[in-house]
Simulated scan of single mutants.
Amino acid sequence: MSVHPYAGDRIGLATIHAKERAVAPPFRRLMDATVVVAPDLDTDKLGTFSGEVPRPDALVETSLMKAELVFRTMDVDCAVASEGSYGPIDRLPLTPGGMEIMAFVDRKRGMRVVETLATHRTNWRLMSFEAGDPSVSKAVKSLGFPDYGVFVISGSSGDHPVKDLTNLDEVVAAVDREARRSADGKALVVADMRAHRNPMRMKVLRALAWKLARRLATLCPKCGAPGFGHLLSRRGLPCEACGDPTHWIDFEIDGCSCCGHAVVRLRNDGRRTAPRLSCKACRNRSVVSSTASGETTGRTG
């Protein structure tokens, strides 16, 4: 096998939350590259899960900003960073979920690669308590505490979240204190989603890191640059009944971020038509046909 372009390279990682535990193994295994945490970076300046610092932009843009920070403190050509968002799902408000983004920047090649991973694997939850509530300990344990961290936040002001609590007595005391100083008399307990305080999120980041590393390990068949892979999906798979385009994916486009070479890839499942039930045109014709039949029946009755 030929040596990968990143073999032996140092790749800077922007993190203060031990994400190297998730990112380093696949980069080492698949490309023989060493992931090194960038020194003297405060990634919390680009947003915090506890809410006191808002994210400056959308997830993808923020993850790229974070990766670019690496070059301020390290003399490397490549950098990687991740950004995540967790909370209730819009259409299923009682079901939490998350989205993880991992961005890779190769400034020598002028290349940026971003991979994403949506997940339902999370303990994220937000709970509200008044001072003296006897159910705090049991509720916090249900989040996995102390193996999983929690934040305690005043119900009326999120400026000073209480972090890095280590035992139940500290959590109960923080809830009582924050509830009493809150204008609404309540304190919020929120699952800590920082990677080093959330083993489940660390597993999701590990899965995403493998996805990114596999992408980077794939070389462009034309120019040999790393990162050849999925660029976009094109919808419009034809209906099996009428042949009209549907919302189903018809084909994928893989490409190179360096030279622009791209290839069309058919669906992995081999389907070349979409089910009739997925076709808007067929459904509309069925409605029209049913209406017309009903009108005819009404006239003859």
Rank of each mutant, 00 (worst) to 15 (best):
E20C: 08
T95I: 15
F27E: 03
K138I: 13
V288L: 14
S157Q: 06
R267L: 11
P161I: 11
L266V: 11
K203W: 07
F151D: 03
E68H: 09
P26M: 05
A183N: 02
G236H: 01
S290Q: 11
L41W: 00
R181Q: 03
Y6Q: 01
A79C: 06
T297F: 12
R271N: 06
D184H: 08
L208N: 04
G270E: 04
F49C: 01
V204E: 09
R125V: 13
C279W: 02
R283E: 09
L92R: 13
R72S: 12
D77Y: 09
R285C: 03
H160D: 04
S50W: 01
I11A: 01
K222V: 08
D75I: 07
A195N: 06
R91G: 04
H4G: 05
A187F: 01
G298M: 02
F129M: 13
M74S: 07
D250H: 12
E100P: 08
S85P: 11
E178S: 05
D184E: 07
L277G: 07
M111P: 03
R121W: 09
S137F: 12
G110D: 02
A18K: 09
P275C: 03
D57C: 13
A187H: 01
V60K: 15
V288T: 10
L143I: 13
A173M: 13
G270Y: 06
W248I: 06
K222M: 04
T48Q: 01
K222N: 07
G132L: 02
R214M: 08
V150G: 11
A118C: 07
